[in-house]
Write a protein that binds this DNA or RNA. Structure first.
Lengths: 266, 266
DNA sequence: TCAAAAGTGTTTCCAATACACCCATGA
DNA sequence: TCATGGGTGTATTGGAAACACTTTTGA
């Protein structure tokens, strides 16, 4: 366990009674790299088990602030697109889909250097209602850091999800469904890309989210007509073909559009 | 206080430690009557203060079941359209927008015939994170009943909202925004009408929700083309004009449509 | 016979789609 | 000079919107 993690655990234990009871948050953090949608997951120690980055809410902290805090802690990123999508409150949501999961969790808890194991148990094993947030981030800018339960924090291809804790796979599914809906009236896909990008990059993002091919030339026209992309110099890719223009997101124009209302569908 | 309410209060107090801590639900229940959207609100005793029908979640009950239970208790209706729309977790959400509200609440609590006032206080005055659900119901079929805090439970015109408890006005706003979005891809408006209705009825529902006038003839064509309305006999209204056809909702056709996907916008 | 609402038809316009064409680039 | 992907043009289709025309009804 790293020093950083020890410190996190210490902080957690010392403030355990400052948490709002029975409520957690889970973040579905999506990035885009190498033409694939990636999700930031935590691999648990001593087990082939992964989970969403999550956390708890301090008594004097709003739900949203807690989500931002978790995001900041795991990725180093502040002030980005974050959106609440659903609150999960089934009674059975914490019963692991497979019995081995319970063993793995038990195993991990026992190995933690805890000051007050009983209090920790009482906290961690209560029923939690969890609120899901999703974030779209620029893959390049993140510096993933595990929390004290995780061995490492890593970008995983959405198409190749490993075994996930509890109901976290259902949470991810719901997040993606919500994202697809949002995409119809907000160009959220833009937050996944670095500052400058080509239209093809953006199209690939849309295709990854919507899980379908889009027509190249029509996509270009539609997205440009919305009018919040600035064209820059061409980019020589080194490939044997015409060089594409680079574009960037014009936040000012975008905000003007928002006030007048956007119609948008793909 | 009615016998019914006394019983409700008794039940509440006796089970107060079986509630999931710090979490509540609030229901935005909408109906349609007399060409207006109405919302079901509770008027508090001894005060000109209104609130959304709400409740708490039992330890062995899912969030959704709790919402259905509240709906059933307030309206007598079971198995209807109910949709979670947002979870509100601001720290200050319970600080009344006006100081007099605190006085009114205090006033009411003191007058309740409680067995254990201290325990009641400790419960009711904690910080709550609340999850909002909205329901669209057939106005005619409801039998509003107040809970033990309410003097009466009543349908109020959405255009003429009275002073509301805490952040309940913000919750309503959010519900309506969500409803407008949903309306774009699900014909949810239908749940607001009795079994048989005219196209004009339905159009008025849409206009009430979207807050704008729609073209009569285009609305008719669009809604009929979706193909899940059955035409019935004409209805003689007694007015000096052509009699409209009655329609009913064809659930079977609708469900087929859902699987193949709906495109819908007004 | 008149006003009001219902039902249907028509015209115009624009977005979506499919696809064709030429251009730039480096192997 | 060729394959590849980029940028632009165009024809077709279908829906949205505006509005005109006719029908039905009771006063």
């Amino acid at each position: 366990m790293s020093d950083d993690q020890k410190k996190q655990l210490e902080e957690f234990e010392s403030r355990i009674d400052q948490f709002h009871p029975g409520h957690s948050i889970d973040c579905v953090i999506l990035g885009y790299h190498d033409r694939h949608l990636k999700i930031l997951l935590l691999k648990w120690k001593h087990a082939e088990l992964w989970s969403l980055p999550g956390g708890f809410v301090y008594t004097h902290e709003s739900l949203e602030d807690a989500a931002y805090r978790v995001l900041k802690e795991r990725t180093g990123l502040g002030s980005i697109f974050l959106s609440q999508f659903h609150t999960f409150g089934d009674v059975e949501r914490q019963t692991a889909p497979s019995a081995p999961q319970a063993v793995m969790m038990e195993n991990l808890y026992q190995k933690l250097p805890l000051k007050d194991p009983v209090r920790f148990r009482n906290w961690i094993q209560q029923r939690f209602i969890t609120t899901g947030y999703f974030a779209l981030v620029d893959f390049e800018k993140t510096e993933p850091r595990p929390d004290f339960l995780g061995e490492r924090c890593e970008w995983i291809d959405l198409q190749q999800l490993p075994e996930l804790l509890m109901d976290h796979d259902a949470i991810i599914k719901k997040a993606l469904a919500q994202l697809r809906i949002q995409l119809n009236y907000l160009p959220v896909g833009l937050s996944l890309l670095p500052e400058k990008f080509t239209i093809q990059d953006l199209q690939k993002v849309y295709e990854a989210i919507l899980q379908k091919k889009l027509d190249r030339s029509n996509f270009q026209r539609k997205i440009l007509k919305l009018g919040f992309l600035n064209r820059h110099e061409k980019q020589m890719t080194g490939a044997a073909n015409k060089a594409p223009f680079l574009y960037s997101f014009d936040e000012r124009n975008y905000k003007e559009l928002l006030t007048s209302g956007i119609g948008f569908s793909m």
